[in-house]
């Protein structure tokens, strides 16, 4: 298995501020890996560079054999990358099902005017899309909540719905931006299992940004540590936990608790 996503010296500057500095990662196909780092280290900016929301000032991003740096967001998605957001960004006034249906956009082929005379292709595709949406809804454990308006769903359900929406585009690579933010420890562990299921059952490569060390150490196969936009360490969870620079970046506190938590995480 080779790398599905490689970034080469990706740099993003805002005026004089260097948010991402020559950051390089190689994400192996069908792996679960993480980018971690203190607040404001530039992780989300890096995600935004991958998804095309920002154009990197310098550097190259290679996904599945294509150079994708500087492509517009919709085209990046069509190549097979989809993402969730740190602060959930659902289409809050649309229903859960509609959210997932929008997510399926890249795979729908009918032209807009076919809806006017309801061509056979249109009816078939809509029925299939609806079926797929319900399947995804069940997959993320939200059976029967399809007709609820998204912003009325409980917080945890919104997180799951956002993942379902991201899955709807049938991505090869799924970027999760702090998926456990705002969750209690039980919910986090549950989500961790769910992420593993995504990879095992659907064969999707997963790249996380995460603060919860328990989650990160528990499921990642490879970790990159970011600080002030640059890479300060990379390796397996075990290597990262022993890396003095990482401990320094987290002022010892995060890493130490990370150590303790990992043991629990590995038991789990």
């Amino acid at each position: 298995m080779g790398a599905i996503l490689s970034t080469h010296k990706v740099t993003k500057r805002f005026g004089g501020l260097v948010a991402v500095n020559s950051f390089e990662i190689d994400v192996q196909e069908q792996s679960i890996s993480s980018v971690i780092g203190p607040n404001g280290a530039g992780k989300t900016t890096f995600f935004n560079c991958i998804t095309g929301f920002y154009t990197p000032t310098e550097g190259e991003i290679i996904f599945d054999g294509h150079y994708i740096q500087g492509l517009s967001t919709d085209r990046v998605t069509q190549k097979g990358i989809s993402r969730t957001y740190q602060n959930i960004r659902l289409f809050s006034k649309m229903t859960a099902i509609e959210n997932i249906l929008v997510g399926q956009h890249p795979h729908l082929k009918t032209l807009w005017f076919e809806a006017l005379y309801k061509s056979r292709r249109f009816l078939k595709e809509e029925a299939e899309a609806l079926e797929e949406s319900i399947r995804l809804l069940n997959f993320v454990g939200l059976s029967g909540m399809g007709d609820h308006v998204a912003h009325n769903l409980p917080y945890g359900a919104q997180r799951r719905l956002e993942i379902a929406r991201a899955l709807a585009s049938k991505p090869k690579l799924l970027l999760l931006d702090e998926p456990t933010a705002g969750m209690n420890p039980n919910e986090s562990v549950e989500l961790m299992h769910f992420i593993r299921r995504l990879r095992d059952e659907l064969g999707i490569t997963i790249l996380l940004i995460e603060h919860d060390m328990k989650v990160v150490m528990g499921i990642s196969e490879e970790i990159w540590v970011m600080d002030f936009g640059g890479k300060i360490a990379e390796g397996t969870p075990l290597q990262i936990q022993r890396n003095p620079r990482v401990i320094e970046a987290y002022l010892g506190r995060g890493a130490a608790s990370g150590l303790n938590l990992t043991e629990e995480g590995e038991e789990a």
């Binding site: 993402r83 929008v102 956009h105």
Partner: peptide, 27 residues
């Protein structure tokens, strides 16, 4: 007819959040 089709959903998604709609692959 258009409201209940894919185009209608695209419009509404765009109305709710342009950036995310674009990230869903919508032009």
């Amino acid at each position: 007819r258009l409201r209940d089709s894919r185009l209608g959903r695209q419009w509404m998604a765009m109305r709710e959040d342009e950036d995310v709609a674009e990230a869903m692959g919508i032009n």
